[in-house]
Design a protein around this nucleic acid. Sequence first.
DNA 1: CACTATCGATAGTTACAGTATCCATATGCG
DNA 2: CGCATATGGATACTGTAACTATCGATAGTG
Lengths: 218, 218
Amino acid sequence: MSELSAATGAPIATIKYYLREGLLAPGERTSPNQANYGDAHVRRIRLVRALLGPGGLDVATAKDVVAAIDSDLPINHVFGIAQRAASVRLTGLGGDDEALARVDELLAGLRIHPSNPGREAAAAVIAAFESTGQRHEPDWYRRSLEAALVVAEADLDMVERRQGRDAQAETVVVGTALGDALFAALRRAAQEHVSTLRYEPVAPVEPDHREHPDVRQH
Amino acid sequence: MSELSAATGAPIATIKYYLREGLLAPGERTSPNQANYGDAHVRRIRLVRALLGPGGLDVATAKDVVAAIDSDLPINHVFGIAQRAASVRLTGLGGDDEALARVDELLAGLRIHPSNPGREAAAAVIAAFESTGQRHEPDWYRRSLEAALVVAEADLDMVERRQGRDAQAETVVVGTALGDALFAALRRAAQEHVSTLRYEPVAPVEPDHREHPDVRQH
DNA sequence: CACTATCGATAGTTACAGTATCCATATGCG
DNA sequence: CGCATATGGATACTGTAACTATCGATAGTG
Protein backbone atom coordinates (compact mmCIF):
# COMPACT_ATOMS: atom_id res chain seq x y z
CA MET A 1 0.00 0.00 0.00
CA SER A 2 2.89 2.33 0.62
CA GLU A 3 3.86 1.72 -3.00
CA LEU A 4 0.41 2.87 -4.07
CA SER A 5 0.87 5.97 -2.00
CA ALA A 6 4.30 6.63 -3.44
CA ALA A 7 3.13 6.07 -7.01
CA THR A 8 0.16 8.41 -6.77
CA GLY A 9 1.18 11.01 -4.22
CA ALA A 10 -1.93 10.28 -2.17
CA PRO A 11 -1.36 9.74 1.58
CA ILE A 12 -2.01 6.23 2.84
CA ALA A 13 -4.81 7.45 5.09
CA THR A 14 -6.48 8.93 2.04
CA ILE A 15 -6.19 5.71 0.09
CA LYS A 16 -7.80 3.87 2.97
CA TYR A 17 -10.54 6.47 2.91
CA TYR A 18 -11.18 5.94 -0.80
CA LEU A 19 -11.31 2.19 -0.15
CA ARG A 20 -13.83 2.73 2.62
CA GLU A 21 -15.98 4.97 0.46
CA GLY A 22 -16.01 2.52 -2.41
CA LEU A 23 -14.08 4.77 -4.76
CA LEU A 24 -11.41 2.14 -5.11
CA ALA A 25 -11.73 -1.63 -5.39
CA PRO A 26 -10.00 -3.66 -2.65
CA GLY A 27 -6.70 -5.23 -3.60
CA GLU A 28 -6.24 -8.89 -4.27
CA ARG A 29 -5.98 -10.52 -0.87
CA THR A 30 -3.03 -12.76 -0.08
CA SER A 31 -3.74 -13.04 3.65
CA PRO A 32 -6.07 -11.47 6.22
CA ASN A 33 -3.91 -8.39 6.46
CA GLN A 34 -2.16 -8.27 3.16
CA ALA A 35 -3.29 -7.39 -0.35
CA ASN A 36 -1.71 -6.77 -3.71
CA TYR A 37 -2.46 -3.72 -5.78
CA GLY A 38 -1.68 -3.35 -9.42
CA ASP A 39 -1.38 -0.78 -12.10
CA ALA A 40 -5.15 -0.55 -12.35
CA HIS A 41 -5.27 0.69 -8.77
CA VAL A 42 -2.68 3.34 -9.47
CA ARG A 43 -4.64 4.61 -12.45
CA ARG A 44 -7.88 4.54 -10.56
CA ILE A 45 -6.47 6.62 -7.75
CA ARG A 46 -5.22 9.16 -10.24
CA LEU A 47 -8.65 9.20 -11.86
CA VAL A 48 -10.37 9.72 -8.53
CA ARG A 49 -8.00 12.53 -7.61
CA ALA A 50 -8.67 14.22 -10.94
CA LEU A 51 -12.43 13.95 -10.42
CA LEU A 52 -12.29 15.26 -6.85
CA GLY A 53 -9.75 17.98 -7.57
CA PRO A 54 -10.00 19.83 -10.88
CA GLY A 55 -13.21 18.00 -11.72
CA GLY A 56 -14.84 19.39 -8.61
CA LEU A 57 -16.98 16.34 -7.91
CA ASP A 58 -17.83 15.30 -4.39
CA VAL A 59 -17.00 11.85 -3.12
CA ALA A 60 -20.49 10.41 -3.43
CA THR A 61 -20.82 11.57 -7.02
CA ALA A 62 -17.37 10.36 -7.94
CA LYS A 63 -18.34 6.98 -6.57
CA ASP A 64 -21.33 6.78 -8.92
CA VAL A 65 -19.12 7.72 -11.80
CA VAL A 66 -16.40 5.15 -11.20
CA ALA A 67 -19.10 2.56 -10.62
CA ALA A 68 -20.45 3.41 -14.07
CA ILE A 69 -17.04 2.81 -15.61
CA ASP A 70 -16.78 -0.58 -13.97
CA SER A 71 -20.32 -1.55 -14.89
CA ASP A 72 -21.29 -3.00 -18.23
CA LEU A 73 -23.69 -0.20 -19.02
CA PRO A 74 -23.55 0.96 -22.62
CA ILE A 75 -21.45 4.01 -23.28
CA ASN A 76 -24.34 6.40 -23.71
CA HIS A 77 -25.59 5.55 -20.24
CA VAL A 78 -22.15 6.21 -18.83
CA PHE A 79 -22.30 9.53 -20.61
CA GLY A 80 -25.60 10.33 -18.95
CA ILE A 81 -24.21 9.51 -15.52
CA ALA A 82 -21.14 11.63 -16.12
CA GLN A 83 -23.34 14.50 -17.26
CA ARG A 84 -25.42 14.32 -14.14
CA ALA A 85 -22.30 14.16 -12.03
CA ALA A 86 -20.88 17.27 -13.65
CA SER A 87 -24.17 19.07 -13.06
CA VAL A 88 -24.62 18.17 -9.41
CA ARG A 89 -23.57 21.56 -8.09
CA LEU A 90 -26.37 23.24 -10.06
CA THR A 91 -29.22 20.81 -9.68
CA GLY A 92 -31.82 21.43 -7.08
CA LEU A 93 -31.29 25.19 -7.09
CA GLY A 94 -34.37 25.33 -9.23
CA GLY A 95 -34.61 28.11 -11.70
CA ASP A 96 -38.12 29.45 -11.89
CA ASP A 97 -40.56 28.53 -14.63
CA GLU A 98 -39.84 31.68 -16.57
CA ALA A 99 -36.17 30.84 -16.81
CA LEU A 100 -37.03 27.29 -17.86
CA ALA A 101 -39.19 28.67 -20.62
CA ARG A 102 -36.34 30.85 -21.83
CA VAL A 103 -34.04 27.86 -21.85
CA ASP A 104 -36.51 25.77 -23.78
CA GLU A 105 -36.79 28.53 -26.33
CA LEU A 106 -33.00 28.69 -26.58
CA LEU A 107 -32.72 24.94 -26.99
CA ALA A 108 -35.56 24.65 -29.47
CA GLY A 109 -34.30 22.74 -32.46
CA LEU A 110 -31.89 20.67 -30.42
CA ARG A 111 -32.66 17.04 -30.03
CA ILE A 112 -32.55 16.73 -26.29
CA HIS A 113 -34.83 15.17 -23.76
CA PRO A 114 -36.42 17.39 -21.08
CA SER A 115 -34.59 15.39 -18.42
CA ASN A 116 -31.22 16.56 -19.72
CA PRO A 117 -29.41 17.92 -16.65
CA GLY A 118 -28.14 20.91 -18.58
CA ARG A 119 -31.64 22.18 -19.13
CA GLU A 120 -32.45 22.65 -15.48
CA ALA A 121 -28.93 23.84 -14.71
CA ALA A 122 -29.10 26.47 -17.42
CA ALA A 123 -32.43 27.66 -16.06
CA ALA A 124 -30.94 27.98 -12.58
CA VAL A 125 -28.01 29.99 -13.89
CA ILE A 126 -30.16 32.27 -16.01
CA ALA A 127 -32.56 32.81 -13.12
CA ALA A 128 -29.63 33.78 -10.89
CA PHE A 129 -28.15 35.99 -13.56
CA GLU A 130 -31.30 37.95 -14.15
CA SER A 131 -32.16 38.11 -10.45
CA THR A 132 -29.10 40.29 -9.94
CA GLY A 133 -30.67 42.96 -12.07
CA GLN A 134 -28.84 42.00 -15.24
CA ARG A 135 -30.86 42.31 -18.38
CA HIS A 136 -32.00 39.31 -20.34
CA GLU A 137 -29.14 38.55 -22.72
CA PRO A 138 -30.40 36.33 -25.54
CA ASP A 139 -27.42 37.17 -27.69
CA TRP A 140 -24.99 36.05 -25.01
CA TYR A 141 -26.94 32.85 -24.38
CA ARG A 142 -27.22 32.03 -28.06
CA ARG A 143 -23.56 32.53 -28.80
CA SER A 144 -22.64 30.48 -25.75
CA LEU A 145 -24.79 27.70 -27.09
CA GLU A 146 -23.12 27.90 -30.50
CA ALA A 147 -19.77 27.50 -28.81
CA ALA A 148 -21.11 24.66 -26.69
CA LEU A 149 -22.10 22.82 -29.84
CA VAL A 150 -18.56 23.17 -31.13
CA VAL A 151 -17.03 21.68 -28.02
CA ALA A 152 -19.68 18.98 -27.88
CA GLU A 153 -18.53 17.83 -31.31
CA ALA A 154 -14.95 17.85 -30.09
CA ASP A 155 -15.98 15.87 -27.00
CA LEU A 156 -17.65 13.16 -29.01
CA ASP A 157 -14.81 13.02 -31.52
CA MET A 158 -12.39 12.46 -28.70
CA VAL A 159 -14.44 9.59 -27.35
CA GLU A 160 -14.77 8.02 -30.79
CA ARG A 161 -11.01 7.88 -31.08
CA ARG A 162 -10.96 5.37 -28.22
CA GLN A 163 -11.14 1.67 -28.89
CA GLY A 164 -13.42 -0.44 -26.74
CA ARG A 165 -16.12 0.34 -24.24
CA ASP A 166 -13.85 0.59 -21.22
CA ALA A 167 -11.46 3.07 -22.76
CA GLN A 168 -14.40 5.06 -24.04
CA ALA A 169 -16.09 5.02 -20.66
CA GLU A 170 -13.02 6.35 -18.93
CA THR A 171 -12.57 9.08 -21.51
CA VAL A 172 -16.21 10.05 -21.25
CA VAL A 173 -15.96 10.37 -17.51
CA VAL A 174 -12.72 12.26 -17.27
CA GLY A 175 -13.50 14.36 -20.33
CA THR A 176 -16.86 15.38 -18.95
CA ALA A 177 -15.55 16.15 -15.49
CA LEU A 178 -12.44 18.00 -16.59
CA GLY A 179 -13.80 19.50 -19.78
CA ASP A 180 -15.69 22.20 -17.96
CA ALA A 181 -12.62 23.22 -15.99
CA LEU A 182 -10.49 23.22 -19.11
CA PHE A 183 -12.92 25.38 -20.98
CA ALA A 184 -13.21 27.83 -18.11
CA ALA A 185 -9.45 28.19 -18.03
CA LEU A 186 -9.20 28.72 -21.78
CA ARG A 187 -12.00 31.24 -21.56
CA ARG A 188 -9.90 33.29 -19.14
CA ALA A 189 -7.10 33.36 -21.66
CA ALA A 190 -9.42 34.12 -24.55
CA GLN A 191 -11.04 36.96 -22.66
CA GLU A 192 -7.74 38.67 -22.10
CA HIS A 193 -6.73 38.11 -25.70
CA VAL A 194 -9.92 39.55 -27.13
CA SER A 195 -9.87 42.42 -24.68
CA THR A 196 -6.32 43.29 -25.60
CA LEU A 197 -7.04 43.15 -29.31
CA ARG A 198 -9.98 45.46 -28.88
CA TYR A 199 -8.55 48.02 -26.56
CA GLU A 200 -4.82 47.91 -27.24
CA PRO A 201 -4.72 46.96 -30.88
CA VAL A 202 -1.04 47.73 -31.38
CA ALA A 203 -0.59 45.55 -34.42
CA PRO A 204 2.69 43.73 -34.04
CA VAL A 205 4.82 44.08 -37.16
CA GLU A 206 6.04 40.53 -36.87
CA PRO A 207 3.13 38.66 -35.32
CA ASP A 208 5.12 35.49 -34.78
CA HIS A 209 8.22 37.06 -33.29
CA ARG A 210 6.90 39.54 -30.81
CA GLU A 211 8.03 39.65 -27.23
CA HIS A 212 5.66 39.78 -24.29
CA PRO A 213 2.55 41.78 -25.02
CA ASP A 214 1.89 44.72 -22.75
CA VAL A 215 0.95 43.99 -19.21
CA ARG A 216 -2.74 44.39 -18.69
CA GLN A 217 -4.90 43.79 -15.68
CA HIS A 218 -3.45 44.15 -12.25
CA MET B 1 -33.93 43.94 8.09
CA SER B 2 -36.81 41.49 7.94
CA GLU B 3 -37.86 43.30 4.76
CA LEU B 4 -34.44 42.61 3.29
CA SER B 5 -34.84 39.00 4.19
CA ALA B 6 -38.31 38.83 2.68
CA ALA B 7 -37.22 40.60 -0.50
CA THR B 8 -34.25 38.35 -1.13
CA GLY B 9 -35.21 35.05 0.40
CA ALA B 10 -32.05 35.02 2.49
CA PRO B 11 -32.55 34.25 6.20
CA ILE B 12 -31.86 37.10 8.59
CA ALA B 13 -29.02 35.23 10.21
CA THR B 14 -27.42 34.88 6.81
CA ILE B 15 -27.73 38.58 6.08
CA LYS B 16 -26.06 39.34 9.37
CA TYR B 17 -23.33 36.93 8.38
CA TYR B 18 -22.77 38.71 5.07
CA LEU B 19 -22.63 42.01 6.92
CA ARG B 20 -20.05 40.60 9.30
CA GLU B 21 -17.94 39.24 6.47
CA GLY B 22 -17.97 42.52 4.60
CA LEU B 23 -19.98 41.20 1.66
CA LEU B 24 -22.64 43.78 2.29
CA ALA B 25 -22.34 47.41 3.33
CA PRO B 26 -24.00 48.35 6.63
CA GLY B 27 -27.34 50.12 6.36
CA GLU B 28 -27.79 53.79 7.01
CA ARG B 29 -27.98 54.14 10.78
CA THR B 30 -30.92 55.90 12.35
CA SER B 31 -30.10 54.89 15.91
CA PRO B 32 -27.71 52.55 17.70
CA ASN B 33 -29.88 49.56 16.95
CA GLN B 34 -31.71 50.56 13.83
CA ALA B 35 -30.65 50.96 10.24
CA ASN B 36 -32.31 51.54 6.90
CA TYR B 37 -31.62 49.41 3.87
CA GLY B 38 -32.48 50.31 0.34
CA ASP B 39 -32.85 48.79 -3.06
CA ALA B 40 -29.08 48.71 -3.46
CA HIS B 41 -28.89 46.32 -0.52
CA VAL B 42 -31.48 44.04 -2.02
CA ARG B 43 -29.60 43.88 -5.31
CA ARG B 44 -26.30 43.36 -3.58
CA ILE B 45 -27.65 40.41 -1.61
CA ARG B 46 -28.95 38.86 -4.79
CA LEU B 47 -25.59 39.41 -6.40
CA VAL B 48 -23.77 37.80 -3.49
CA ARG B 49 -26.12 34.82 -3.52
CA ALA B 50 -25.54 34.38 -7.24
CA LEU B 51 -21.78 34.48 -6.75
CA LEU B 52 -21.83 32.03 -3.84
CA GLY B 53 -24.41 29.71 -5.37
CA PRO B 54 -24.24 29.09 -9.11
CA GLY B 55 -21.04 31.11 -9.36
CA GLY B 56 -19.34 28.77 -6.96
CA LEU B 57 -17.17 31.42 -5.33
CA ASP B 58 -16.20 31.19 -1.69
CA VAL B 59 -17.02 34.00 0.71
CA ALA B 60 -13.53 35.49 0.82
CA THR B 61 -13.29 35.62 -2.97
CA ALA B 62 -16.77 37.06 -3.33
CA LYS B 63 -15.74 39.76 -0.92
CA ASP B 64 -12.83 40.78 -3.14
CA VAL B 65 -15.10 40.86 -6.11
CA VAL B 66 -17.81 43.05 -4.60
CA ALA B 67 -15.09 45.32 -3.26
CA ALA B 68 -13.83 45.68 -6.83
CA ILE B 69 -17.28 46.75 -7.99
CA ASP B 70 -17.48 49.39 -5.29
CA SER B 71 -13.96 50.64 -5.92
CA ASP B 72 -13.07 53.14 -8.61
CA LEU B 73 -10.71 50.77 -10.34
CA PRO B 74 -10.93 50.89 -14.13
CA ILE B 75 -13.06 48.22 -15.72
CA ASN B 76 -10.17 46.14 -17.02
CA HIS B 77 -8.85 45.79 -13.48
CA VAL B 78 -12.24 44.66 -12.30
CA PHE B 79 -12.14 42.13 -15.11
CA GLY B 80 -8.81 40.84 -13.89
CA ILE B 81 -10.11 40.45 -10.35
CA ALA B 82 -13.21 38.65 -11.56
CA GLN B 83 -11.05 36.34 -13.67
CA ARG B 84 -8.89 35.46 -10.72
CA ALA B 85 -11.96 34.90 -8.59
CA ALA B 86 -13.43 32.50 -11.12
CA SER B 87 -10.14 30.62 -11.26
CA VAL B 88 -9.59 30.23 -7.53
CA ARG B 89 -10.63 26.60 -7.41
CA LEU B 90 -7.91 25.68 -9.89
CA THR B 91 -5.04 27.85 -8.79
CA GLY B 92 -2.37 26.39 -6.62
CA LEU B 93 -2.92 22.86 -7.87
CA GLY B 94 0.14 23.40 -9.98
CA GLY B 95 0.30 21.66 -13.29
CA ASP B 96 3.80 20.48 -14.02
CA ASP B 97 6.17 22.30 -16.35
CA GLU B 98 5.39 19.98 -19.20
CA ALA B 99 1.71 20.83 -19.05
CA LEU B 100 2.55 24.52 -18.86
CA ALA B 101 4.64 24.17 -21.99
CA ARG B 102 1.75 22.51 -23.79
CA VAL B 103 -0.55 25.33 -22.74
CA ASP B 104 1.90 27.95 -23.92
CA GLU B 105 2.10 26.20 -27.24
CA LEU B 106 -1.68 26.12 -27.45
CA LEU B 107 -1.96 29.79 -26.56
CA ALA B 108 0.82 30.91 -28.87
CA GLY B 109 -0.50 33.72 -31.01
CA LEU B 110 -2.84 34.98 -28.33
CA ARG B 111 -2.06 38.29 -26.76
CA ILE B 112 -2.07 37.30 -23.14
CA HIS B 113 0.27 37.96 -20.28
CA PRO B 114 1.90 34.96 -18.57
CA SER B 115 0.16 35.93 -15.35
CA ASN B 116 -3.25 35.23 -16.87
CA PRO B 117 -4.99 32.92 -14.38
CA GLY B 118 -6.30 30.74 -17.19
CA ARG B 119 -2.82 29.76 -18.20
CA GLU B 120 -1.93 28.07 -14.95
CA ALA B 121 -5.43 26.68 -14.53
CA ALA B 122 -5.34 25.11 -17.97
CA ALA B 123 -1.99 23.55 -17.17
CA ALA B 124 -3.39 22.08 -13.96
CA VAL B 125 -6.36 20.62 -15.80
CA ILE B 126 -4.27 19.19 -18.62
CA ALA B 127 -1.81 17.72 -16.14
CA ALA B 128 -4.67 16.05 -14.29
CA PHE B 129 -6.24 14.85 -17.52
CA GLU B 130 -3.11 13.23 -18.81
CA SER B 131 -2.16 11.83 -15.40
CA THR B 132 -5.21 9.59 -15.57
CA GLY B 133 -3.71 7.79 -18.52
CA GLN B 134 -5.62 9.76 -21.13
CA ARG B 135 -3.68 10.53 -24.24
CA HIS B 136 -2.57 14.01 -25.11
CA GLU B 137 -5.49 15.52 -27.02
CA PRO B 138 -4.29 18.56 -28.96
CA ASP B 139 -7.34 18.49 -31.18
CA TRP B 140 -9.68 18.65 -28.21
CA TYR B 141 -7.70 21.44 -26.60
CA ARG B 142 -7.52 23.45 -29.79
CA ARG B 143 -11.20 23.20 -30.58
CA SER B 144 -12.05 24.12 -26.99
CA LEU B 145 -9.90 27.18 -27.37
CA GLU B 146 -11.65 28.14 -30.61
CA ALA B 147 -14.97 27.94 -28.81
CA ALA B 148 -13.56 29.90 -25.88
CA LEU B 149 -12.63 32.69 -28.26
CA VAL B 150 -16.20 32.78 -29.49
CA VAL B 151 -17.66 33.13 -26.03
CA ALA B 152 -15.00 35.65 -25.05
CA GLU B 153 -16.22 37.88 -27.87
CA ALA B 154 -19.76 37.44 -26.65
CA ASP B 155 -18.67 38.25 -23.10
CA LEU B 156 -17.04 41.51 -24.13
CA ASP B 157 -19.93 42.46 -26.36
CA MET B 158 -22.28 42.03 -23.46
CA VAL B 159 -20.18 44.30 -21.26
CA GLU B 160 -19.95 46.92 -23.98
CA ARG B 161 -23.70 47.14 -24.12
CA ARG B 162 -23.68 48.54 -20.58
CA GLN B 163 -23.49 52.25 -19.97
CA GLY B 164 -21.18 53.53 -17.29
CA ARG B 165 -18.40 51.97 -15.29
CA ASP B 166 -20.59 50.71 -12.45
CA ALA B 167 -23.04 48.89 -14.68
CA GLN B 168 -20.14 47.44 -16.63
CA ALA B 169 -18.35 46.35 -13.47
CA GLU B 170 -21.38 44.50 -12.22
CA THR B 171 -21.91 42.80 -15.55
CA VAL B 172 -18.27 41.84 -15.73
CA VAL B 173 -18.42 40.26 -12.31
CA VAL B 174 -21.66 38.39 -12.63
CA GLY B 175 -20.96 37.44 -16.24
CA THR B 176 -17.57 36.03 -15.38
CA ALA B 177 -18.79 34.14 -12.33
CA LEU B 178 -21.95 32.74 -13.90
CA GLY B 179 -20.67 32.41 -17.46
CA ASP B 180 -18.75 29.27 -16.69
CA ALA B 181 -21.77 27.63 -15.11
CA LEU B 182 -23.99 28.67 -17.98
CA PHE B 183 -21.60 27.27 -20.53
CA ALA B 184 -21.24 24.00 -18.66
CA ALA B 185 -25.01 23.62 -18.61
CA LEU B 186 -25.36 24.38 -22.32
CA ARG B 187 -22.56 21.94 -23.03
CA ARG B 188 -24.62 19.19 -21.38
CA ALA B 189 -27.48 19.95 -23.71
CA ALA B 190 -25.24 20.23 -26.75
CA GLN B 191 -23.58 16.91 -25.97
CA GLU B 192 -26.88 15.11 -25.91
CA HIS B 193 -27.97 16.84 -29.11
CA VAL B 194 -24.84 15.97 -31.01
CA SER B 195 -24.83 12.45 -29.66
CA THR B 196 -28.43 11.93 -30.72
CA LEU B 197 -27.79 13.31 -34.19
CA ARG B 198 -24.84 11.01 -34.64
CA TYR B 199 -26.25 7.80 -33.29
CA GLU B 200 -29.99 8.14 -33.80
CA PRO B 201 -30.19 10.27 -36.90
CA VAL B 202 -33.90 9.73 -37.52
CA ALA B 203 -34.46 12.82 -39.59
CA PRO B 204 -37.72 14.39 -38.44
CA VAL B 205 -40.02 15.14 -41.34
CA GLU B 206 -41.27 18.30 -39.73
CA PRO B 207 -38.33 19.60 -37.73
CA ASP B 208 -40.34 22.33 -36.04
CA HIS B 209 -43.35 20.28 -35.05
CA ARG B 210 -41.90 17.09 -33.75
CA GLU B 211 -42.89 15.67 -30.40
CA HIS B 212 -40.39 14.55 -27.81
CA PRO B 213 -37.35 12.94 -29.33
CA ASP B 214 -36.57 9.44 -28.16
CA VAL B 215 -35.52 9.04 -24.61
CA ARG B 216 -31.81 8.57 -24.38
CA GLN B 217 -29.59 8.13 -21.41
CA HIS B 218 -31.04 6.64 -18.29
C1' DC C 1 -45.89 50.61 28.80
C1' DA C 2 -45.85 45.98 27.27
C1' DC C 3 -44.35 43.84 22.90
C1' DT C 4 -41.92 42.87 19.20
C1' DA C 5 -37.89 43.70 16.34
C1' DT C 6 -33.03 45.12 15.74
C1' DC C 7 -28.01 45.19 16.30
C1' DG C 8 -23.98 43.08 17.41
C1' DA C 9 -21.40 39.56 19.60
C1' DT C 10 -20.64 34.91 20.51
C1' DA C 11 -21.32 30.29 20.22
C1' DG C 12 -23.13 26.21 18.03
C1' DT C 13 -24.28 23.27 13.93
C1' DT C 14 -23.76 20.68 9.73
C1' DA C 15 -21.40 18.68 5.91
C1' DC C 16 -17.41 17.19 3.89
C1' DA C 17 -12.87 15.44 3.11
C1' DG C 18 -9.70 13.89 4.92
C1' DT C 19 -6.21 12.50 8.98
C1' DA C 20 -4.74 10.04 13.02
C1' DT C 21 -4.76 6.31 16.33
C1' DC C 22 -5.37 1.55 17.73
C1' DC C 23 -5.17 -3.08 17.37
C1' DA C 24 -4.24 -7.65 15.92
C1' DT C 25 -1.75 -9.80 12.65
C1' DA C 26 1.99 -10.97 9.27
C1' DT C 27 6.21 -10.48 6.90
C1' DG C 28 11.00 -10.39 6.57
C1' DC C 29 15.53 -9.35 7.95
C1' DG C 30 19.38 -10.34 11.20
C1' DC D 1 13.96 -17.62 15.98
C1' DG D 2 12.34 -13.29 17.15
C1' DC D 3 11.46 -8.66 16.90
C1' DA D 4 10.95 -4.19 14.22
C1' DT D 5 8.10 -2.65 10.59
C1' DA D 6 4.09 -2.56 7.67
C1' DT D 7 -0.74 -3.86 6.77
C1' DG D 8 -5.86 -3.90 6.89
C1' DG D 9 -9.74 -2.52 9.30
C1' DA D 10 -12.33 0.01 12.64
C1' DT D 11 -13.06 4.10 14.98
C1' DA D 12 -12.37 8.58 16.34
C1' DC D 13 -10.68 13.01 15.55
C1' DT D 14 -9.51 17.47 12.90
C1' DG D 15 -10.11 21.52 10.04
C1' DT D 16 -12.65 24.33 7.06
C1' DA D 17 -16.51 26.61 5.30
C1' DA D 18 -20.98 28.50 5.49
C1' DC D 19 -24.22 29.19 7.86
C1' DT D 20 -27.67 29.23 12.12
C1' DA D 21 -29.13 30.02 16.80
C1' DT D 22 -29.06 32.42 21.16
C1' DC D 23 -28.45 36.39 24.07
C1' DG D 24 -28.54 40.92 26.01
C1' DA D 25 -29.30 45.61 25.60
C1' DT D 26 -31.99 48.80 23.35
C1' DA D 27 -35.65 51.09 20.68
C1' DG D 28 -39.66 52.11 17.89
C1' DT D 29 -45.10 50.65 18.05
C1' DG D 30 -49.78 50.07 19.30
